[in-house]
């Protein structure tokens, strides 16, 4: 069958080395005792303690978390609605414009999205701060949510919704008691995606935030522009660890669920 030749093994080894060596080095040097990031001076966890005492970082982390929670939740609601409208809404006036507006933010350079939203907020006289960042993040991440959810909705057997209507559900009841539970995994991954995008965003937040509410990426950016620092390495290590644990847990859970379902289906077919 498929062949795992020396070429493939080499490609995979080099490829994953390229992907992971920088991250591994970053993590290792976060435990470096020296202030100089490039010279190893023995193991130490002092930068983690420094980080815990750094008010500026802690505040920024708190702002980022608030923004990410609020915007990803709003984006999930709006994105799910948009996906439903796209897949099930039928024809309506301006449908092409609507689907264009859903897809465009995915390929739009962040500098343009950020600039245009900032100009909007100034034009309507909205004071910039956490709220404007939430609005901005909701707008661009709802499009990602809607892509994830609509691909699930599109593959979903429409007759299941019709069966609910046939058995006496109103359209809203059918959505709540049948559609939503079935697309829930896609809605959850949409939320996670929106949450990560918001946590990660530097450019749009830089444009739309006010001086009082600096997010973590903005804080990191302004500090690494001045050069490499072991404190940032420590912070990065914490973030990487959180994401790694999250992604691995999620993939293990979904893998288990798939395996169990497969086993049950096989057993059912055998009876």
């Amino acid at each position: 069958m498929r062949r795992l030749t020396w070429f493939n093994v080499t490609a995979l080894t080099l490829g994953f080395a390229f992907l992971y060596i920088p991250i591994v080095i970053l993590v290792i040097y976060s435990f470096n005792a020296s202030k100089l990031v490039t010279v190893w001076a023995g193991f130490s966890t002092k930068w983690y303690f420094e980080l815990m005492r750094n008010e500026a970082f802690l505040n920024a982390a708190w702002v980022t978390l608030k923004v990410a929670l609020a915007s990803s939740t709003a984006a999930t609601v709006l994105g799910t609605m948009a996906a439903y409208v796209m897949v099930r809404g039928g024809r309506f006036f301006g449908r092409t414009l609507f689907s264009g507006m859903i897809y465009a933010p995915l390929v739009m350079p962040e500098v343009i999205t950020g600039l245009s939203l900032l100009l909007l907020f100034i034009a309507v006289g909205l004071e910039r701060g956490v709220f404007t960042v939430v609005l901005a993040h909701t707008t661009f991440s709802m499009c990602f949510v809607s892509i994830v959810v609509s691909s699930r909705l599109a593959t979903f057997d429409r007759s299941i919704e019709e069966a609910a209507l046939d058995l006496g559900c109103t359209p809203f009841d059918a959505f709540r008691s049948v559609t939503l539970p079935i697309i829930a995994p896609a809605v959850i991954s949409g939320w996670l995606l929106a949450f990560t995008l918001s946590l990660d965003d530097l450019v749009i937040a830089s444009f739309t935030t006010g001086p009082a509410s600096t997010t973590l990426p903005i804080r990191i950016f302004s500090s690494i522009r001045l050069g490499v620092s072991p404190e940032i390495n420590a912070l990065s290590t914490i973030l990487i660890a959180l994401v790694t644990i999250g992604v691995i847990t999620a993939s293990l859970v979904s893998k288990r669920a798939i395996m169990r379902q497969r086993a049950e289906e096989q057993r059912a077919a055998a009876t």
Partner: peptide, 19 residues
């Protein structure tokens, strides 16, 4: 393994190369 870096911060991945 390919997707994992994508979930970690873009900024951090760029920063990793600075050192």
């Amino acid at each position: 393994l390919v997707i994992l870096p994508f979930w970690t911060s873009f900024l951090i991945r760029v920063y990793a190369w600075m050192g």
